[in-house]
């Protein structure tokens, strides 16, 4: 098992996994979309607009999940100094930021018909926005350090500080929001969940997770090649993939 942690072994192993995981992600997402868009009934309160939930909620889950994965990989890279963990952490950031952006934009598109406004300072949307800033910080830090090892370790420290802060930020925004809650704005609630709505929601969540794994592996693979470019095995890989 441990031998897969060596970049040399990980590279072909991940290469074999990616098509399968990618395929599974596409199938799950397609099935989830079919159930969500065509099978699930309209919500009696929110009408058809609630269907945005099927991407909004799973991508909100993903945005936090990916940050935790990134911080855990960062911690692992600081403790054990494994290259694979460093690469994993830096591959997480753009994907997590993408999910955060999707959450924000779909939340805004859901808010317009429900609240009558594109942006409300809803607690969850606001913490999501701050989460986006945290992701951007990690990415900007990585981008401005040339040495990949130093970049990975600095980003790991920042991700760890961020992961400790996220609950605090979330709690304070929640608290701030209850004080300033405008009366007319009701929360973007999940409609009372009917099994026919739960199935697509969970399918979409699983599909996003699979997608994340596949895309992280793709990113890790080329980053490994870049980092190990002076080794013999990379030269062989380059030779064989001509």
């Amino acid at each position: 098992m441990l031998s897969y942690a060596a970049p040399k072994n990980f590279y072909p192993f991940a290469g074999k996994l990616i098509p399968w995981i990618g395929f599974a992600a596409v199938v799950t997402l397609a099935f989830g979309l079919y159930l969500g868009l065509f099978v699930a009934p309209a919500d009696y309160q929110q009408g058809q607009s609630y269907r945005i939930m099927f991407i909004h909620v799973p991508s909100a889950w993903m945005s936090m999940f990916v940050y935790v994965v990134m911080a855990a990989a960062g911690a692992a890279s600081l403790v054990w100094k494994t290259k694979l963990a460093e690469v994993l952490a830096s591959a997480c950031a753009p994907i997590g930021a993408s999910f955060t952006l999707i959450t924000l934009v779909t939340g805004s598109l859901w808010g317009k018909p429900m609240w009558g406004t594109w942006w409300a300072w809803d607690a969850r949307l606001t913490s999501e926005l701050i989460l986006l800033f945290l992701y951007i910080g990690v990415m900007a830090l990585q981008a401005s350090i040339d040495d990949p090892r130093r970049a990975a370790r600095a980003a790991a420290v920042l991700a760890l500080v961020g992961v400790v802060n996220i609950p605090v930020i979330h709690f304070s925004v929640e608290w701030w929001n209850t004080l300033h809650q405008p009366a007319s704005v009701s929360k973007l609630g999940m409609p009372s969940i009917h099994p026919s709505m739960l199935a697509p929601l969970l399918l979409m969540a699983v599909g996003f997770k699979l997608y994340f794994v596949a895309m992280v592996l793709v990113r890790m693979r080329y980053q490994i090649l870049e980092r190990e470019r002076h080794t013999q095995w990379v030269a062989q890989v380059v030779e064989s993939e001509k």
Binding site: I130, F133, S172
Partner: peptide, 30 residues
Amino acid sequence: IGAALTLGLRGGGVLVSLLVLPLYTPILIF
């Protein structure tokens, strides 16, 4: 923390604001 992370980087001044300001939100709120 932000100052230590951006030490000696080009554009460190602007970068530090990006890293640190989101972390400041709880202090601002309370």
